[in-house]
Amino acid sequence: MAKQLMKDPLNLIISGVAGQGNVLIAMVIGNALVENGYQVMFGQTFGSNQRGGSVRNYIRISNETKYSPIIPQGHGDIILGMEPIETMRMLKEFGNPNVMTVVNPRAIMSIDSRGGTTEYPDIDKLLADIEKLSSKTWVINATEEAQKMGNPILANVILAGGLIGANILPLEKNSFESLLQERFPKAFEINFKALNRGIELAKS
């Protein structure tokens, strides 16, 4: 039996911009949870979201039963935001006084070809608002760290490390190891390093 959750169901949202590896990392996290004995319902939005679109993954974790694939509004427990605007978008929809947020502060500009707001908000104010709306916030400079490690695509694994380091998911580092090995057989070492870097950053 998997260990008790701080809340059942525990609703995790992973959001970002298509092309950042959101779905891939959500899959690794989802599989790790299944291997740890949890019931997982994993809702994804894709379809016509090519590169550059907003992407969200809903992961509902339970000890008891399967929940529906869409998280009800205001019922997010943990938000893993790979981009500040996308993090704020999720806080608007799923926020509540207890929500905890792990956020990558690197902005990705957008073109809204259909009119409406096009200006990217002031990034410092946006991050301050994210902290204000979350009960706890971990700002993980994942893109910057990933670039230092030689490839910006590692940001998603660094952020997953952030979730583990923040100790808010019922997952240990070792439950990730074998899955990373399975997913990235050729690039395991660099991904494992990225995971550890994320854990360190969340703890510091």
Partner: peptide, 18 residues
């Protein structure tokens, strides 16, 4: 089940498919 709802946030730029 009333969602707490956060309305005090300005509109955010959307990312439509291109």
């Amino acid at each position: 089940p009333v969602p707490p709802g956060i309305t005090a946030v300005a509109d955010l730029p959307k990312r439509p498919p291109l």
